[in-house]
Nucleic acid binder design. Structure first.
Lengths: 354, 354
DNA sequence: GGTTAGCACTCGGGGCGTGAGAGTGCTAAC
DNA sequence: GTTAGCACTCTCACGCCCCGAGTGCTAACC
């Protein structure tokens, strides 16, 4: 006991082995793990009594918990954390699984949205928890092409293609009837004013046009104004669309059979804010980060873990892929899978924006 | 009893009143309804004993059920059906609610996608069940504008604006390095070949280009080919994107506290096929159709009801709005709300495609 | 003849005690 | 330091019983 107090840091190898075994058993069964079950199933080379002693120590240090006196132990978030730390040294995904994932990626048509959906779906099917992917997004955008198309007698559709991929479309009410030629002309004007501009650049153009004499055409002005707003919004958000697949997998977990908790999680995923907040913590390529239970800032996420990795090139288009599952989750496999998929996404982004 | 056998059709007014009361009580409480509770709470002017007699009749005719001998009654799908028939004569939504919904619609930027999302969200918040909306989709599409934009050294982004709104984007792998001017030229060529074409027309163009000599540029050919496929896919699908909001509301219902059933429903909503199948049954404008429990073709939907209405003009862009909830659902309010929102969507579509 | 009061009957749910089983913590021996 | 042994604790499943809600039936009533 004295020993333990002296070194709160690293655990003895045997203790760690036992912790590991408990976690793996608990992940597999979702049942509190007893000392007896552990020795029979894991060949630890010690007796149940010894295991019990170690368990008591681990519990005193906060790595384990037990729901009541005569129940087995289960890992705390701190326990999972230690476990995850011990395995983050890259373990490659099994070749078979690599192949399966690559195969799935091969199927996709290159419609960008499908792409992220596919990444999420692949992660979900491979890990049996929920997969998450955000669209790749450069830190700032430029206008690549811009177009104004009639969309009815009093409506025009403004289509903005941003550099590096995304296409934005908004409808504009048209003050007066315009024929197609007029729109075509406006479209040309828009193009020459805005092509290649950043949000700030477009803002400047807007300023010039507003002050111009003779006064600029009203519709043109509104189109520019709308484009500026659209680009500002784009730049301001950390993540573009969030795609999640396989949330049903998570609902299947016994800890969520009562729908109470899961619905709060659904809610959090709806708004893209949460993943955006996490982005700054996902910096270096290829590094998978794990957020376990109460480590998540958002209270609704206290019962789940996130395994996330960034993809893309620092300073260029970036996004996030990962999985969401119960804290009782097969971390090693999840981490390997997420790392592999993020690598794959890297390749694709490189290919695209090299 | 003889009477009942003679006229299986319309129910006596009193029986119908009692059925109505039972349904309303059950909708409110989610508990089987007893004869005693009914007379005290609904002032039916008869004694519990009489109510019991009527209940027995209603049960014999299949409008009611009871889970066990000494439990109260609950409505069957057939019971709900009769109830719904009796209220489908348009009841306008309360002015306050109309105002609230209109207000919510006023908020939206006219980005088309947001629009349908908003419709679904509005329905969800107003009815406290899940809201559903599909994007408006014309029966067949034409190319309104088409553009080929560089998206990296070996990638080009093909952007197709279809008449009446939707914008499609796909990525094409580029066989050899092309500079922006070349792409610009190709873009022009695409435009002149395809603008105004229907899927069939584009197909013909593709045929001509394939046979041409000197042979058409490979990238151009692939772009045309991809456009044809995209348009065919578009024409072939009955519905475009399906937006659903507020599924959490449904999860809250006590009948779904065990997540078993709800997850199958989630699954069905994922693929757009189901709503597409229903489209043919939603013909006349302003008519709200109700699909109750087992009336739904899909087995996963046997525990829920759909209240749906089409919007848009027959032969022009059309879509569906509606709500999804437990069969135990506040139908009158849901029907009024769906009717009102579909009317609103009609206005908007008219405004757009007049 | 339809309606009602009265009453016996039925069934589910909640509260309670019990016993089995799993697992612990402690002590004493190895 | 490790292990065997043992008493203790707590949950869970089962069976039991009783209560209450609600029915269905019969006989009286208007």
């Amino acid at each position: 006991m004295a020993r333990r107090k002296d070194r709160p840091g690293p655990l003895e190898p045997r203790s760690e082995a036992i912790l590991r075994a408990i976690i793996e058993e608990y992940v597999a069964t979702a049942q509190p793990v007893g000392s007896q079950a552990l020795v029979t199933r894991y060949r630890l080379g010690v007796s149940p009594a010894t295991v019990r002693n170690v368990m008591a120590e681990l519990e005193a240090e906060g790595y384990l918990d037990h729901p009541h006196t005569s129940a087995g132990r289960l890992p705390t978030d701190k326990g999972y954390r230690l476990y995850v730390e011990s395995i983050t040294e890259a373990v490659a995904l099994a070749p078979v699984e690599q192949l399966m994932i690559r195969h799935q990626f091969g199927q996709v048509e290159f419609a960008s949205e499908q792409w992220f959906r596919l990444a999420a779906a692949t992660l979900a099917s491979s890990t049996h928890v929920a997969g998450i992917a955000t669209a790749a997004k450069p830190p700032s955008c430029r206008v690549r092409r811009i177009d104004l198309v009639s969309a009815g007698p009093r409506m025009a559709s403004l289509v903005v293609v941003l550099a590096e991929g995304p296409v934005k479309q908004v409808l504009l009410a048209v003050d007066q009837q315009r024929d197609d030629e007029t729109l075509e002309l406006l479209s040309r004007a828009l193009s020459s004013h805005l092509t290649g501009r950043s949000a700030a650049g477009a803002q400047r153009v807007l300023g010039e046009l507003e002050g111009a004499s003779p006064p600029t055409d009203g519709l043109l002005l509104r189109a520019v104004e709308r484009t500026v707003r659209l680009m500002r919004d784009y730049d301001a958000s950390d993540v573009e669309d969030v795609f999640s697949e396989g949330l049903l997998n998570v609902m299947d977990a016994p800890e969520f059979s009562r729908s109470e908790t899961i619905r709060r999680i659904f809610g959090v995923l709806q708004d893209r804010v949460y993943l955006g907040d996490l982005m700054p913590q996902l910096t270096r390529d290829g590094v998978v980060r794990v957020f376990i239970g109460s480590e998540n800032a958002h209270i609704a996420m206290h019962d789940v873990s996130l395994v996330l990795a960034p993809y893309g090139r620092a300073g260029r288009a970036v996004g996030v892929v990962g999985v969401l599952g119960p804290t009782r989750m097969a971390y090693p496999h999840a981490i390997s899978t997420v790392r592999y998929v993020s690598g794959l996404m890297n390749e694709l982004v490189d290919h695209l924006y090299a």
